[in-house]
Write a protein that binds this DNA or RNA. Structure first.
Lengths: 134, 134
DNA sequence: ATAATTGCAAATTTTTTGCAGGTTC
DNA sequence: GAACCTGCAAAAAATTTGCAATTAT
């Protein structure tokens, strides 16, 4: 259970209840879109406005607290920043699972003459659960 | 030089001049956003409307002619569909380069219990040219 | 106390839609 | 000739902005 107040302050952002709420929501879900965050946080905090979410998503990305996860054909989702990892995106149920990037894989991805700062790897397909539903 | 008329027909789409124009524009540029396509095609075809581009991008993705390339913090770009490959996206100049995924790399990316249909790999960083500009 | 943040409403931007006229096969 | 496509204008959806009141440090 992350301390969101600490996380915000560490990144030069004031710890408002809206921000901790947004972070908690994203963290619980793993990956959440703006609208999903809005619906979720509003439950506990009905006065929250969409504008506040938009402003804060931008800020928190700038400060490196969260990261955008663009998804084909959908609105982007957001996740807490952590080490680069692979997203397994199920085209059937829509769930997103994280998978660690091993040293081996990292090695393979490295490329001459290009200084990589961060990787974004989305693998689209059918997850185990959906495979067995056939 | 691809035959866009053939490409469209093969994928059950009528070969209109707007569609071949859009495809040519994307193909020349490698990766283009809706707005970039619009500005580009309008040069030769001033009556083209944005609505037509939107409609056709959706259709051509459905038919597998083109593919969406989502970019962090920007509007998506689109490219002609081809074998999965890596996008090297320079954070300094914005240029996108394609890099082939070899069979061995593909092997290594494969994951148990997940049936991959397509991969989307974006590596963000600084390209060779921008590195030497320092 | 100060500077930053919120939430509202309005403005802007982006995307979608309906439809009459035109085009492709 | 039938089915499909285009471009327009209008509608809807998504995002940004300005500002007065509130809140965090």
């Amino acid at each position: 259970m992350t301390d969101y107040i600490e996380l915000l302050k560490k990144n030069d952002l004031k710890a408002t209840i809206q921000r901790t709420g947004i972070l908690k929501s994203i963290d619980n879900a793993g990956h959440f879109s703006i609208d999903e965050i809005y619906e979720d946080v509003k439950e506990h905090y009905p006065t929250l406005s969409l504008a506040t979410i938009y402003k804060n998503i931008i800020l928190m990305i700038q400060q490196g607290v969260i990261v955008e996860v663009p998804i084909n054909g959908e609105k982007s989702k957001y996740e807490l920043k952590k080490d680069d990892h692979i997203h397994l995106i199920c085209k059937s149920c829509g769930k997103i699972k994280d998978k660690e990037i091993t040293k081996e894989k990292e090695q393979i991805l490295s490329i001459e003459n290009f200084q990589i700062t961060n990787a974004q790897i989305n693998l689209y397909g059918i997850c185990k659960e959906c495979q067995s539903k056939i």
